[in-house]
Every structure is written in structure tokens, then in C-alpha cells.
Amino acid sequence: MSTGEEQTVSQYIQHHLTNAAVGEGFWTWHIDTIGWSVFLGLLFLWGFRKAAKKSTTGVPGKWQCFVEMCVEFVDTSVKDSFSGKSKLIAPLGLTIFVWVFLMNLMDLIPVDWLPMAAQQIGGAMGYEPHNVYMKVVPTTDLNTTLALALSVFLLIIFYSIKIKGVGGFVKELTMQPFNHWAFIPVNFILETVTLIAKPASLALRLFGNLYAGELIFILIALIGYFQLPLHFAWAVFHILVIVLQAFIFMMLTIVYLSMASEEH
């Protein structure tokens, strides 16, 4: 990336891995992550709503076929994995799968294109180009993956209390796996760790895979003229990672909510 002065390799990598942020400390907002997340979410809503409004019982168009395939795929996954009854789970699964997939898909855009465009715009607005940052893959930001995982965690608590009641939920935390009052402290520690590990594993798995993929793209960009073949080869492989991570996040969400909906 050209900033008007030569950059070292470490400066180049650090620049690409730095978010555009406002605020300080706990109240720091990553505006590039928020902006791209909201944009991709609205893109998902607009695209699927358009397909729904123009759907036909006759020969469907290509976009309608794609949307129907996504809906059917998620619907089948929910029926196979969710044991309870809820009108929320299938739409939630579809939203998670498509939204996470779109955020992951931004990783395939060459790493310099959008940051360089942001630098040009920032320079025109009077900012120093090397102080203009732009990360375009929301899932390479731990804040995004943690926010998604915490939302799932709150739903787990909600469904656990809704199905089992407060007493049943407390009993589940204190009387399993050892069903004896003497083991209540041990059970509570084990079950609490298990409960907290669910959102933590969701967030860290998605973040780790996408962050590593983005870092490899950045290292490939440092090669120069020979980067295009390597970028293409890594992108072809990375497509599998992008789809797989969206699918895993969706399936684990469904499974965790199914476990929370079971009565013991």
C-alpha cells in the first residue's frame, strides 16, 4: 500500500490489521467493522426480500433458485438438529449462515483495493494517508465474533429458562453430572465452565480461522508481481474455509439451542 513513503514489512502488515477506530479504552468503536457488518446485513435483507417479492411458482430465476436452495438447506439442518419447537430457530439459522458467509466473503477482495480507496478519500478530505485505516472483513475483528456469540449465549439462557423454568435451570447447573447435594459446588463449577465455553469457542473459532486467512492474503500481497497466481490459489482453498466457518457457526448455534430446549 502506498502512503507517500516507504513502509517496512511490519508496518505494512500492522497497517492492514489496524481498525479505523473512534473513542478510547472500553468505548473504542471500530467504525469499519460496524459499517461493513451493517452494510452486508442490509445487503442480505434486500437480496432475500427481493427474491421473496418476485418469487413465482413457474420457472424460477437464478437468484430465486439460489435463495430457495439456501432456505431449504438451513431448514433441513434445523429439522435434523433442533429437537424442540420454535418459529425463531430457522430464521435465526438462515440469518447467521448468510450474514457470516457474506462477512467472510470480503476476505476474497484483494487486500489493498479498499484500504487504498479509503486512503485516497481520506487524503482528499485532508487526512494523512498513513493514518487512514480500513479493515473490510468484520469476522477478523474479535469484537464481531464475540458479539455474535454473546447473542447466541443470551438465547441459550432464554430458552433454558423458558423450557425448564428458573428452578429447572438452576437445578441443571447444580445437580449435573453428579446428582447429589454434596456435589453441588463441583457441579456448578463444571456446568458454568461448560456454559461459558460455548460462546467462547464460537467466537474464537470463527475469528481465528478468518484472521489467519486474512494474514496469509496480506503476506501474499508482499510478494509483488507474483502475488496474483498465489492469491488465486489461496482464494480457491479459502472459499472452503469461508463456507465451512459460516456453516459451523450456524450448526453449533442450532445444536446449543436444541440442548437448551431439552427438558431433563
Rank of each mutant, 00 (worst) to 15 (best):
M106I: 11
I239A: 11
T33C: 14
A197P: 06
T144C: 08
A221Y: 12
V71A: 07
E24G: 03
V152N: 01
M69E: 08
L146G: 09
T33A: 12
T95C: 07
V132Y: 06
L114M: 15
T253C: 01
V241L: 06
E68H: 12
Q11P: 02
I109S: 12
L240Y: 12
H15I: 01
A20S: 14
L190I: 00
W181I: 06
L240C: 14
L142V: 09
T28D: 02
A235E: 09
K198Y: 00
E191D: 11
M125H: 09
P199E: 06
Q227Y: 06
D80W: 11
F26E: 08
I239H: 07
S83H: 10
F153N: 00
H30P: 08
T174C: 01
G61P: 06
Y256W: 11
V71M: 04
L244T: 15
T76N: 09
H130N: 08
G208I: 04
F178S: 01
M125K: 13
W113F: 13
I161H: 01
E214Y: 15
L222Y: 05
V78Q: 04
T56Y: 07
H30A: 13
L202N: 05
Y225M: 06
A51C: 07
L148D: 05
M259W: 10
V152I: 12
G25Y: 06
Q120F: 10
K62Y: 07
R205Q: 11
P110I: 07
H30Y: 13
A212I: 12
K53G: 03
I121E: 06
I248K: 01
K135G: 05
V111Q: 05
N143Y: 14
I31L: 14
A51K: 00
S201L: 08
K164T: 00
T76V: 15
T3D: 03
A51N: 03
L195C: 04
H30T: 11
N179S: 05
L210N: 12
E128M: 03
T145E: 01
L240H: 13
T194G: 13
E214R: 14
D80H: 11
T140P: 02
K62S: 12
M175W: 08
A124E: 12
F97S: 13
V241I: 11
C65V: 13
F237Y: 14
T3Q: 05
L92A: 10
G213D: 04
F247Q: 03
L252P: 04
S258F: 09
A21E: 15
R49H: 08
K50V: 08
M251A: 08
A124W: 15
F217W: 08
S151N: 01
M250P: 01
V98T: 07
L155S: 06
A117T: 14
Y159W: 10
L210W: 07
T174I: 00
V100D: 12
M1C: 09
K79N: 06
M1N: 13
F39E: 11
L17H: 09
V38P: 03
F82R: 05
V74Q: 07
S258E: 08
W36N: 15
I109P: 11
V152P: 01
H264S: 02
P199M: 08
Q7C: 00
C65G: 15
A51F: 06
K198F: 01
T192F: 02
K198D: 01
L108Y: 04
T194K: 13
S86G: 12
F44T: 11
M259L: 09
